[in-house]
Design a protein around this nucleic acid. Structure first.
Lengths: 169, 169
DNA sequence: TTAAACTTTCAAAAAAAAATGAAAGATAAT
DNA sequence: ATTATCTTTCATTTTTTTTTGAAAGTTTAA
């Protein structure tokens, strides 16, 4: 396999994984393209490499910037904007975890908290089942939350060095 | 808030969370409905509660069974099939982790492994960037994999008791 | 200012994903 | 063997998501 083919495979795999996890396929592909590019690329280059429209490229790049995965660069004497992807996997993982926590986990924890407060007839099986499921899920969500928060504070080496070693015990 | 309203909110929240994570909204909603039902429900009941078609209910319930989150029950003297959801959050979390690992992580790790093997000109920046990104992501994916494997073997109390305490250090 | 170079927006179109429901397929009781 | 009950399938429709591209907006320089 040569580089060009491998690149395509990588972009395709990253796009598929993204879409399976609720991330726009094109966004994941643009991210993959930038990840394997040593230099920052222009919108034109992204459009050409992935055969996507200008509007799509523009919006996708903006989203990637919002996620903290890509940054705009300016070259002296040039009007064009260049886009460069953060290459450090630890930082990528943290940024993704951070965003998804904020966008998805936090709201759901809030709702679960409210639902845990619902009062009802302790003798009613429907109420008991509701209450117990909601409380258990709420606990789990809070555990995940705490774990993520600690991870977001943690240092890379500490994390990679420890977490799965611990599990192996 | 009363139970009926709370139930709807829970189903809605669970459906939304699911769809954000690449899981069919209706499937997540059916799961939520069964989670808060003390008794097993029939296809008819699921259809009525969520206003969905027979075909949709049937396929969704089958998928939930494939995920190991729901089981068929038969009541003596009845032809109808009843569906009951596993209520233990630890088991739910494990089943979801197990399935997604198998369906999504394993395939991507395989591809990353192949792409790590690609040979090229060490002097070419494009090759260097490709190689280094792929190898780093490959490492990360393998770490996640190992962590998941250990988690899948682990016992509930051990897991919840330790993982986030460890992070707090 | 004017105009060229580049970026952003968004209504409309296209594509992808999900849902419908009628018909076919099972199964079990009569 | 027939019928009634219940389950599954899948071509079609509907809904949702994503993409397009032309027009509007912005910035810089002459």
């Amino acid at each position: 396999m040569e580089l060009a083919e491998a690149k395509l495979k990588f972009i395709e795999a990253w796009g598929k994984l993204g879409s399976e996890w609720g991330i726009n396929r094109t966004m994941a592909q643009v991210h993959a393209l930038l990840l394997v590019s040593p230099e920052a690329l222009t919108t034109e280059e992204v459009m050409a490499e992935l055969s996507i429209s200008r509007g799509n490229a523009n919006m996708t790049l903006r989203d990637l910037i919002d996620w903290g995965l890509v940054e705009k660069q300016h070259k002296t004497g040039e009007r064009k904007e260049y886009f460069y992807a953060e290459k450090d996997t630890w930082i990528i993982a943290r940024r993704v975890a951070e965003e998804r926590k904020k966008r998805e986990l936090d709201p759901v924890i809030k709702i679960l908290g409210q639902l845990s407060e619902v009062k009802g007839d302790e003798k009613d099986p429907a109420f008991k089942a509701f209450n117990s499921s909601v409380k258990d899920i709420s606990k789990l969500a809070n555990n995940v939350n705490t774990t993520l928060e600690t991870m977001l504070k943690a240092e890379e080496n500490w994390f990679f060095g420890s977490i799965f070693k611990m599990f192996k015990k």
